[in-house]
Write a protein that binds this DNA or RNA. Structure first.
Lengths: 161, 161
DNA sequence: TTTGACTCTCGACCATGGTACAGGGCTTAT
DNA sequence: ATAAGCCCTGTACCATGGTCGAGAGTCAAA
């Protein structure tokens, strides 16, 4: 059974460009757990590197594409928009971008991420409290989660727009 | 100048029900930094407690409503959908819900939140690395953020749906 | 060499989370 | 008592992030 599956997976891989394993869109979608259309959509939005094509027009994907799509999916669950995710993915040092540019960008993102972590830690604590208080006496009438993010109005600044 | 603003804020508060300060929708929207329509939308979706009404039909809000709206906004930035946020807000112990019910729910949420925190910590580390490497030698060609969430395929289970 | 499964493009459609009126009724300072 | 400025309901519209289908071409195992 498992052998058949593995064979199927191998079947769906093409060894093409100098020993690098490549994939067609269906296999990429399956491996990244998204629809084909989503892959195409991400390509259009330039969230994944532009694919090479075979003479037929079929897109040629690599493991890199799969990893990047998985990253995008995770980042979305963390509250980043596709636009923000694009910015994150473009954060790199190369001959085009200067150090100070990158540094500023990265430091801004670092701030955002830190604040998200803090918020989530507060929620986590509240949940712990809730779970613990279950082992105790009786009922808590009000909404305990509400206080989780209170009293930390973060300098009045908005994270988004 | 500030005095005028404070007076304006006081003007927009009604002391109504046994000494509790109440607000009209415009003031709530201003204080929670959303549109009036959003407040109405949240009421329709039962994300905030049903408001009392004056004889005129005007909604009567309290500080509780404002806090809850702020919570909703923050939770959204952390990647929770409105449906998930509703579940979070309903997590409480009262005469209606049994301890074991709550506990199970809360433990599931705890899991989700912990995973989000882990992911964000990984991203944060990557950003630190990026910022630090700026002070050093030259250029890094590839996309450093991509590895951030790799190699932790969390037991194949999906967070959402 | 055929045939079933796959791929292409492109345009329409969908769900979520709002946002914007229109037409009418309150409220309140003057 | 009146006008500016609120609030009400309801419906239509919007942006984001997909999702679906038609019509036509490609691939590969038998």
């Amino acid at each position: 059974m498992i052998v058949l599956e593995v064979m199927h997976m191998i079947k769906n891989m093409d060894k093409k460009y100098n020993g690098i394993t490549t994939y067609k869109i269906g296999e990429v979608a399956r491996r990244a757990d998204v629809n084909k259309e989503t892959v195409q959509y991400y390509e259009k939005r330039k969230l994944i590197p532009k694919t090479d094509r075979r003479r037929s027009g079929y897109r040629i994907f690599t493991q890199r594409h799969i990893d990047q799509i998985k990253f995008i999916k995770r980042a979305q669950q963390l509250g980043f928009t596709l636009t923000e995710i694009k910015e994150l993915l473009e954060l790199r040092l190369d001959e085009e971008t200067s150090c100070s540019e990158i540094k500023e960008e990265a430091q801004q993102k670092y701030q955002d991420v830190s604040e998200k972590i803090d918020d989530l830690l507060r929620i986590k604590e509240t949940l712990t409290g809730l779970i613990d208080s279950c082992s105790e006496d009786g009922t808590i009438g009000d909404c305990p989660i509400l206080e989780a993010l209170e009293g930390k109005n973060k300098t009045g600044k908005q994270l988004r727009k």
